[in-house]
Design a protein around this nucleic acid. Sequence first.
DNA 1: GTCTATAAGGTGATAGAC
DNA 2: GTCTATCACCTTATAGAC
Lengths: 201, 201
Amino acid sequence: MKYNKDTSEKILNAASSVFEEKGYSGARMQEIADKASINKALLHYYYKSKDKLFELILKRAIQIVFPKINDILKADIDFFERIERFTTAYIDMVRKNPHIPGFVIHEINSNPKRLIKLIALTGFNLNQFKETIKAEVEKGTIIDISPDQLIMNIISLCILPFIARPIAVNVLLNGDEDYFEKLMEERKTEVSKFIINAIKK
Amino acid sequence: MKYNKDTSEKILNAASSVFEEKGYSGARMQEIADKASINKALLHYYYKSKDKLFELILKRAIQIVFPKINDILKADIDFFERIERFTTAYIDMVRKNPHIPGFVIHEINSNPKRLIKLIALTGFNLNQFKETIKAEVEKGTIIDISPDQLIMNIISLCILPFIARPIAVNVLLNGDEDYFEKLMEERKTEVSKFIINAIKK
DNA sequence: GTCTATAAGGTGATAGAC
DNA sequence: GTCTATCACCTTATAGAC
């Protein structure tokens, strides 16, 4: 068994784009092969089956989304600044990988157990951030809010517009894609301002 | 051509649950037939093709989600109360139909043009609410915020936790489904408090 | 209206030549 | 390593009996 690294990477990139766009069941091995400029047989030679290939892509996607978040949330800096940095970095990351959140969320429903395993592998953990929030509440620097609710709020504000992009663009913004991009750039600061307004005492 | 109304409804219900759970490409006509306790041939007798059946289900889903929103946003009541009523009603609606938002968002990516058409048919329109926000900003009752950003924030806070439920439950809440339900019940008031805190002057 | 049986075409996967 | 050809299976859809 010998592999060409260039070919195997072309395949991974092609598979990412197809799986992220169409989902597992909508994806076709033929389309992945076409996009990688090879044929189906070679695809199976490199990555045994559609399942194996998909699991690899999902793993990669999770590795992109989760570890970065983790680092920022654990950073030893002022709470409000941490929120600012988090929203900025997160929105930046999602803008660079706009299909990943929707892909992960959709596919995860079909196999939640696999999800838990894959996310656990990234070392992702929100407990420390929850504790920080609790401490800030007790210090009286922020209003009395459940850490779980606050975390859900932060994540929601960062990713939903990207997941629902076609709806946002067409229903809210009269089809103006450029304006959507501008709004998302603004969101990098708008979201943290919004959150801090909501919780600061 | 004669149809039995009971049978046609059984089919629609079965199709809703299968399409919403598996998506278009993951859904199988056989599974829909099984769930409706009929056979595939009869399925095609009632609803010509998988495509036609799917379009009907998507249309129904959109009819559930959008018109209700519209009514509340246009109601002639105090701005802050309107936000309260909206979040409560919206979260209630999503709790009753938890699979619809994810379903709509996912399927919409494969055919945004169909989306525009279907949503337009519901008479859904955010322009009036945008104007209201602008007016509130000018009156000075709320901070200077872009109506588009505020609307995205409101919607994001209401629906993302439901779309990402498995992630929320397993990563944030240690797998506690009951606690998730409790949090969602709380959110009916928490979300509007959060929003109003963020924007009230 | 509802069924069984089957057609027609697509999809993932493999065998085997180069 | 990469290809062509092909298999075995699955899925949508229809024909035709009752």
